[in-house]
Design a protein around this nucleic acid. Structure first.
Length: 201
DNA sequence: CGTTCGATGCACT
DNA sequence: GTGCATCGAACGT
């Protein structure tokens, strides 16, 4: 079952928690890939210094101010695409960053895409649990790019679905990889999962 | 085990 | 011109 727009039109922390165990599905021309979400981070409002809306509306962060249930994809460090699911009411900038998946469908296609990264030339094949570990890696494995920015997640090629997967034990901790706003414990992970990013898993 | 650092593109000031 | 919501290798314990 594809998650409806009302799933996203709720407080962002509730959406973040409930996205754990849901399945991100991308139906590309080259094939379908899917993975269960095991790590997310919430970015909430202009008062959150780590949120892209912290300095007010701009051209780049416009999707954050738009309707819930859409993708906000942006390029970071000039190398990595990052995918968020927009939450809350229109006009309230907030989103959930998808940080890691447990790969379920289309692993050969994921592996092919990961191997195409220039810095992986001549490197061994990517293992299953490293495939979608980290926000940049999962976008590359799934084929998610800037072209998918603002795409509706409730229908079409890119959706998030409920397949009745048990979420596992959820742990809240500090968001990682940011220089401000680290005081908030807005990162939700599946405890002990091998695909969770960061040190020591 | 830990820390440091280069690659790389673009929005923002 | 500056600074990233990263990745992975290199090098030091």
């Amino acid at each position: 079952m594809i998650l409806p727009v009302d799933f996203y039109r709720r407080p962002t922390l509730a959406v973040a928690r409930d996205l754990i165990g849901k399945v991100l599905v991308y139906k590309a021309k080259s094939g379908t890939t899917a993975g269960a979400i095991v790590e997310v981070e919430a970015y909430i409002g202009e008062d959150d210094p780590a949120c892209h809306a912290a300095a007010g509306p701009t051209e780049r962060n416009a999707p954050l101010y738009g309707p819930p249930g859409r993708a906000y994809v942006y390029l970071n460090y000039g190398l990595h695409d990052m995918m968020n699911a927009v939450t809350e009411e229109e006009g309230h900038p907030a989103a959930v960053l998808i940080r890691a998946l447990e790969p379920l469908d289309g692993l050969p296609l994921m592996r092919r895409r990961r191997s195409k990264a220039p810095w992986r030339k001549g490197k061994p094949a990517v293992s299953d649990h490293e495939m979608c570990r980290g926000p940049g890696n999962l976008c590359r494995a799934m084929g998610i790019t800037l072209a998918d920015n603002q795409r509706t997640l409730t229908r079409g090629a890119l959706t998030i679905q409920d397949r009745g997967i048990e979420a596992g034990e959820i742990v809240w901790s500090q968001r990682i990889g940011i220089r401000v706003g680290t005081e908030h414990h807005w990162r939700a992970t599946v405890k002990g999962h091998k695909s969770v990013s960061g040190r020591s898993g």
